[in-house]
Amino acid sequence: MSTLNLDLKHPLLLRSLKFVAVVVLLGALAQVMRPVEQPAWEAVQARRSELPLSQIEGALGQGVVFGVLGGFRTILADFTWIRLYVAWEKREAAELDALIRLVTTLDPDSVYFWVNGARMLAYDVPHWRMDDAGGVQILPDARQRAIAEEQAQQAFVLLAQAREFHPNEPKLDLEVAQIYLNRLQDYANAAKWFRQASEMPGAPYYAARTYAKLLRVQGLDQQAYDFLKQLHQELPDGDPYAQKNIVLERIRGLEASLAIPEALRY
C-alpha cells in the first residue's frame, strides 16, 4: 500500500500530465480537422508538380533541400536561374546544362524556364561549341550542321519533358517549330509543329499563318490554299492580332498562283 503513495501535486507528475493532455488534445484536433484539411490539401497538391528530391539533392545540398521542402521552391528556382545567367555569360556549357535541368526540376510549372532553357541549348550553345572548335570560318559546314542538330535534339528532349507538365501549352510546340525552322531549316517538321501548336487553346494566330507559309515554301500550294480558306472562316472579326485581311490577301495570292477559276474562288 505504502509503495503506491503518490504525491499527486509533485511538479514532475503535474508537468507530465499536462504534456500528455496537450498531446492528446492536439491529436484529437488533427483528427477533427481532417475533413477540412484533406480536401484542401488535395486541391493544393493537385495543382503542384511533384518534386523529385533525388534529382536536386546532389545539386543543392541538404541545407537548401530543406529550404525547397519548406516552401521556398520557386524562389530558389528564381535564384538558380540568375546563377544560370552567370554561367551563360561565361559560356560554361556544361554548367548551363546542369542548371537548366535543376531549375526546371525545382519549378517545372514555369513555362519560361523550359522555353528559355531550350533556346539557350539550341541557339547559344552551338555557337559556343563552334567558337571553341575554331569558329564558323574554319569549321566545315557538315560539322556545323552536326553540332546544330545535336544541340537541337537536346532542346527537343527538354521540351518533351516540359510537355509532361504542360500538355496544352502552345509555347512549347512553337519553340520546337522555331528550332526546326531557324536552326535546322527543316521546313516539313517545322510546319508539322506549327500546325500542332496552332490547334492548342491560346495559341498565337501567327502559328497557323506560318504553317501555311511553310506549306508554300515546300511547294504544297494547294494544301496551303485549302488550309487558309478554312482558317479565314475560323478567325474572329475585329481582332487585330488575327490579321484576317492578311490571310485573305494570301488566299488571293494563292488563287492567282494556282489559277483558280473565278467561280470557284473563295
Binding site: 498531446v23 492536439l26 484539411e37 484542401a40 493544393v44 495543382r47 516552401g71 521552391r73 520557386t74 514555369s110
Partner: peptide, 25 residues
C-alpha cells in the same frame, strides 16, 4: 503529422497571381 499543423497548406503563392491560368477555388 498529428501534433503539428500543416503549413504547406498556406504555401500557395505559386498557385496565385501569375502565371497560373485558373484561380484557386
Amino acid at each position: 503529422s498529428w501534433l503539428f499543423p500543416n503549413f504547406q497548406l498556406f504555401n500557395i503563392g505559386d498557385q496565385l497571381v501569375y502565371p497560373v491560368e485558373e484561380p484557386l477555388a
